[in-house]
């Protein structure tokens, strides 16, 4: 998908260089680098807003997910309850969820962050839960055998060993959220959706912004993905990150 996008972009640039026109904005050509360069300031705040949406919702989702995971770890009957509830929330399309929150939290960043957090919650909880469930019995036995209390076992053995899987969940959640957060524009929360929709589709289908906005979103996703691959390696030095 990304490859197609880059090829498209490359072709577009070649065509643009060939025509040598400076009115590419007026002609609404596929991509108009000069427009982007001239108006680069206009892109800063949507990108920052997008970053805030992603980081805040991943952090909130992560914290709640970890609390739920630790809670359900010792109480197995809670697992299906949590999986079921978070699963239902995950099923509801984000755009619907944004607007279902409208009467409760109104329009704005807050609403978007709550809705996005609920998605991250589901993804991270599932991973944390299976990470904690897959701890080798031998590690638990030797921990208990050495006299660790339940709490020590959790903090010193179980959570560190589940960490790679938890971070894998954070990675999936982050990358998905970068994409989904473009819809936050419909919750009145800004972000890259502003470039794609308000400044793109709604502005007489202004192609440059649609292309550039897509590019920004995908680049941001790739950047986060790369960053979290590094974190994965760092967090689990005992096993090679099998990242793709």
């Amino acid at each position: 998908m990304l490859a197609t996008l880059t090829t498209l972009l490359a072709q577009v640039q070649i065509r643009e260089a060939g025509s040598g026109a400076t009115t590419c904005q007026g002609k609404n050509e596929a991509f108009c680098p000069s427009y982007v360069i001239d108006n680069i300031d206009d892109y800063v705040s949507p990108v920052l807003e997008h970053l805030v949406l992603v980081l805040a919702s991943v952090l909130a989702g992560f914290l709640v997910a970890m609390v739920l995971a630790v809670l359900s770890h010792g109480r197995r009957w809670l697992i299906p309850v949590f999986i079921g509830t978070t699963g239902v929330l995950y099923t509801i399309p984000s755009i619907a969820l944004f607007l279902l929150l409208l009467p409760i939290t109104g329009r704005g960043t807050e609403t978007a962050i709550i809705a996005l957090s609920l998605y991250n919650l589901q993804i991270i909880y599932r991973n944390a839960n299976s990470g904690l469930a897959n701890i080798p019995r031998s590690a638990l036995d030797s921990g208990t055998g050495m006299g660790m209390t339940k709490r020590q076992l959790l903090w010193k053995v179980e959570l560190p060993l589940a960490l790679p899987e938890i971070i894998a969940g954070v990675r999936i959640a982050t990358v998905s959220t970068v994409a989904i957060a473009t819809l936050a524009i419909f919750a009145g929360a800004g972000g890259l959706g502003e470039i794609l929709y308000n400044e793109g589709v709604q502005r007489g289908v202004f192609k440059t912004n649609i292309v550039f906005g897509s590019l920004l979103a995908v680049s941001l996703a790739i950047a986060f993905d790369g960053l979290l691959i590094l974190v994965q390696r760092f967090a689990a030095p005992w096993r090679r990150a099998r990242a793709l």
Binding site: M1, L2, A30, I172, V175, S176, V178, A179, I180, T182, L183, I185, L192, G193, L196, Y197, G200, V201, V205, K207, I210, V211, G213, S214, A217, V218, A221, I222, D225
Partner: peptide, 16 residues
């Protein structure tokens, strides 16, 4: 890649 592609971007590109 499927996760990283924003649905809004895909629809907007389609429109454009």
């Amino acid at each position: 890649a499927g996760r990283a592609i924003p649905e809004l971007a895909l629809i907007a590109l389609m429109v454009a």
